[in-house]
Design a protein around this nucleic acid. Structure first.
Lengths: 213, 213
DNA sequence: AGAGGTTTTTGAACGCTGTTCACGAAACCA
DNA sequence: TGGTTTCGTGAACAGCGTTCAAAAACCTCT
């Protein structure tokens, strides 16, 4: 009754993503997948090594989709002749916010998954997909007249990403829903505005520092 | 053989925190707690409603400790007569970084815990403890000559916190260990420097915005 | 001290989980 | 067609959170 081994795998992944999106990590159960895919539990383990393997595969798809969303947002602005750095950064941040809102369960599940003990396996695939995002941001920064060296620009891109990520994730860990959509937007706008102004003033960014006590 | 009901509870919490810190969320098992505390499984449920209840209680202790660390860092600087905004912000960020490093398992467990399905319960206690942190940051910002209205200062404080949080958490989801300690420090220094320069230039921060497409 | 009542502690038992693996069916090849 | 290999199956196992009837401990009053 097996159509194709790969096709069945895709179906399992689609089911798994829905389960994750609806109920978080705890909702990804081998028996539920098997039942919904009309296969046996053992077959799930035939297609994937683990349930973690299923989750990893779903996560890859999510990261790909996020990268595509970012690239699409930039392509859209380019097509409309918009090169303003502020608008481009806000568009990227907006794309991320919409992505998180579109994946209310599976994206938190990805984040929770990455926090689990042995990160020894293959974060390489993860990093590769994230680097793709960093390069988009770095490209936008290169479009402004900040005259940053490549290294500083790389760090600035990662800092921007991490900051937006922090704003969005700690924003969605709080009270209501619409109450914070505003809060998130305000924080992102302040971040981008302050970042651009700060970078415009040029100058050197000391790496050595009295970080603390 | 019970010493005191409350004292036993404290012992359970201490054990639970060690377990979480050593093995993450999956390592918090009722039977392990019972065994290490020399009580029965049922007694654990007599002291706490759930295992989630145990985890929540541990998280409260962690948040209290984090708040104390931030306040202590500020008190230390005050005692040394340091009022420079940059140094104070870097000290706060440094306190957070050290806190995360000191709780390599239990802090990620707290973050993962908050991402789980029903955040309906009592995020009030969480928020209250976080607000305490935001007020510390806002106080530091008030010490600078940025002439921000109270509302903008509040948002700026939350933005700074979220950004540092994002830098630290997405920093520790990557490659080696020392490789990134540098990366995190660089990002934090760039963030703080850019933030101060951006705020110094004053001006209005528009809340309305063409966030995206 | 002892009887009766109340509270706390206990651990066997239940249902659910991820994961395995002998077995039988199906597919493939010559 | 016969032999071989591959693949899907689901009962079985160990471990999990959680419950709850019974036992133990504790308290109170005569």
């Amino acid at each position: 009754m097996a159509l194709d081994k790969e096709e069945t795998g895709e179906r399992v992944l689609a089911i798994a993503e829905v389960l994750l999106n609806e109920g978080g990590m705890d909702n990804l159960k081998a028996r539920t997948i098997a039942e919904q895919a009309s296969i046996s539990v053992g077959s799930v383990y035939n297609l994937f090594s683990d349930l973690d393997g299923v989750h990893r595969a779903v996560n890859m798809r999510l990261l790909d989709r996020l990268g595509a969303a970012g690239a699409a947002a930039m392509a859209d602005l380019s097509q409309r002749g918009i090169t303003d750095v502020r608008q481009r950064l806000l568009a990227l941040a907006g794309a991320y916010v919409r992505f998180v809102e579109a994946h209310p369960g599976s994206w938190p599940a990805l984040l929770a998954f990455n926090r689990r003990r042995p990160t020894l396996a293959e974060p390489d695939a993860y990093e590769a997909r994230l680097d793709q995002l960093f390069e988009i941001i770095a490209g936008v920064l290169a479009g402004g007249d900040f005259d940053l060296d490549a290294d500083t620009r790389r760090i600035a891109a990662r800092t921007l990403w991490s900051s937006v990520h922090g704003i969005v994730t700690s924003g969605y860990a709080a009270r209501s829903v619409r109450r914070q959509a505003d809060e998130i937007d305000q924080q992102i706008e302040l971040l981008v505005a302050v970042f651009i102004r700060g970078l415009e003033r040029g100058g050197t960014f000391a790496h050595a520092g009295t970080t603390a006590s």
